[in-house]
């Protein structure tokens, strides 16, 4: 089954954030070494004198990747919708990673505001990638609002804790087999990414785990390999675990020696 991202099929299922790298050159090296096709970007106030945003945009353009702008830091529906409108104009894409933050400690999404903002944006032609939780009811509402992709968190943003609710993520996958699902946020190690892909998720999105690694470019490649391995494992239909041992070496024909 092909579950695409609003008509776009990705060869590389690792989506990478662009923040917190030691330097722009290291960000570029990480994107290139991992063969990343989609990066997340954001919007901030621009000083006419410094023009930092213009230099960043030149770097991203040179990488030749697709961008997924976010509404990071937005706490209200109005803020998120206005930010999305500005992002569409600046980046020239209908894609938007929709974040409506509800709690400052955990950066947990405000699911009520998220659904409301998603309804407004999809009506206006946006292709919304909502940053959500594994909540099944919220997922259903987001799909009703017109979202074709869902991005549940693995753990709080930047925590590196991995898949905090393995059962919930598995349940979400089982409930919505036709929907493209991306584990977004909270992954710390490549094994977390592999686990998400083994569950049948279509991609993972991460930032801090690569940007804050001692060698970001090497870690980006490690994540890319883990994502490939996890996807291949899912497609290969893994065995079911069992409680009791089962000998892998055939016992028939074994010599009787004692």
């Amino acid at each position: 089954m092909v579950r695409d991202f609003y008509g776009v099929e990705l060869t590389n299922r690792l989506l990478l954030g662009t923040a917190q790298y030691p330097s722009p050159a290291i960000l570029a090296a990480a994107v290139r070494r991992a063969g990343v096709e989609v990066v997340t970007v954001s919007l901030r106030r621009e000083s006419a004198g410094q023009r930092d945003g213009q230099a960043f945009w030149a770097l991203i353009r040179d990488l030749g990747v697709r961008v997924l702008p976010n509404t990071a830091g937005c706490h209200t529906v109005k803020e998120a919708v206005t930010t999305a409108e500005m992002a569409r104009e600046v980046f020239g894409t209908p894609w938007i990673k929709l974040e409506v933050i509800g709690d400052d400690e955990t950066l947990q999404p405000d699911l009520f505001g998220l659904v409301e903002a998603a309804e407004i944006l999809t009506r206006d032609g946006f292709e919304v990638f909502p940053y959500t939780t594994e909540d099944l009811v919220a997922a259903g509402r987001l799909l009703e609002a017109g979202c074709e992709v869902l991005m549940p968190w693995g753990a709080p943003i930047g925590s590196g804790l991995g898949l905090n609710n393995f059962y919930g993520l598995r349940s979400l996958r089982a409930h919505f087999p036709e929907v493209a699902l991306v584990v977004d946020a909270g992954l710390g190690r490549p094994s977390h990414a592999a686990a998400a892909m083994e569950l049948g998720y279509d991609a993972v999105l991460l930032n801090t785990a690569v940007a804050k690694a001692g060698d970001p470019a090497a870690m980006a490649e490690a994540f890319a390999q883990a994502v490939t391995a996890g996807r291949l494992a899912f497609e290969a239909d893994p065995m079911e675990p069992r409680d009791m041992a089962a000998p892998s070496t055939p016992v028939v024909g074994k010599a009787i020696l004692g």
Binding site: R44, A72, V90
Partner: peptide
């Protein structure tokens, strides 16, 4: 007035 910026 806002412009592109690094984001996750």
């Amino acid at each position: 007035v806002i412009a592109p910026m690094q984001g996750g």
